[in-house]
Design a protein around this nucleic acid. Sequence first.
DNA 1: CTACGATAGTCGGACGTCCTAGTATCTGTT
DNA 2: AACAGATACTAGGACGTCCGACTATCGTAG
Lengths: 176, 176
Amino acid sequence: MTPHDDQRVPHPDREPLDPIAEARRLWIEHGWESAADGMAAVTSLMRAQQIALGRVEAVLRRYGVTFARYEVLMLLFFSRAGSLPMGRIGQRLQVHPTSVTNAVDRLEAAGLVRRSAHPADRRAILVELLGAGRELALAATKDLNAEVFEAPGIPPSGVTGLVGILTELRRDAGDF
Amino acid sequence: MTPHDDQRVPHPDREPLDPIAEARRLWIEHGWESAADGMAAVTSLMRAQQIALGRVEAVLRRYGVTFARYEVLMLLFFSRAGSLPMGRIGQRLQVHPTSVTNAVDRLEAAGLVRRSAHPADRRAILVELLGAGRELALAATKDLNAEVFEAPGIPPSGVTGLVGILTELRRDAGDF
DNA sequence: CTACGATAGTCGGACGTCCTAGTATCTGTT
DNA sequence: AACAGATACTAGGACGTCCGACTATCGTAG
């Protein structure tokens, strides 16, 4: 290790930079100032979702379900009759009908829900929460609350701010 | 339309409710107050990402690329040499190595990038941006800036607030 | 009462993500 | 100099999402 070698160490490990702040800087450098913040917002959203989903699924893995399937279970859990038509689930969860088919297939195979005929509309199919599904939903929610939702990695004021901003975005997108 | 009919219209179409606000209400109703805001934040994040990604991909579809592949192109676009090793791309984009392999496979098949040998490390593979890739990156960025990043569906103050909060979340997760 | 457009769900395919496992190569140790 | 552990990338598989196409059923307009 000669003094000469020390010369080339102005940036020790060369990685503790925020990749998104870096991208924003480059955006401005290329004359795209008016879009830089929007780019940073969209990119942050992508990465933050990835992080949050990872934490949630790490907990749910114990129960053998994914977040998508957990959401279906909770929707049924909260429904008065413990059952909902497929289409209604897709509406509430804001996902494509085929995604509901997929999730319900797996939940049914796991014995957590059951498909049954809709009494008034033979096109529709009711999804019914079974006892095992109800127990799993409750237990998984307790763990999720304790391990993720109560410690989301941002201060409480940030949490409410975040929800507020994203509510505007969702409303603007026509979600409700 | 009799006066009697008017009586049963307290909730006209029964759907203009924010699904996430509704879930938050139910969380509190079940005694999970301390987790309600975190749940709302995580769920909002999921949905907002879906919305943002949808807008971005609607623009990129014209160019035959996805957001994942576009990000790889921009990374190369900004790199000094116009080329980066696979691993470096995965680090910057915060994705699994196999996701990089996948994206580069498709970019290469489309003639936008090229794999080449790393001069100093025979394990590594350099990804090189080709002319067509550079042109596509520039054109797609112009469209994205105009159609998405400059009008993200939330006020400018919200945008900076959002980025700030998510930066904390990402730092807390060990992103940088 | 029939016919046509709308609606509910499913199927097959494309894509991105992750995980586990496996091969090749590098690097530091002994 | 040989070897053991780390690192770079790829292969195969699971999963969720969307899209387009298809079938069955509903509801309503003539």
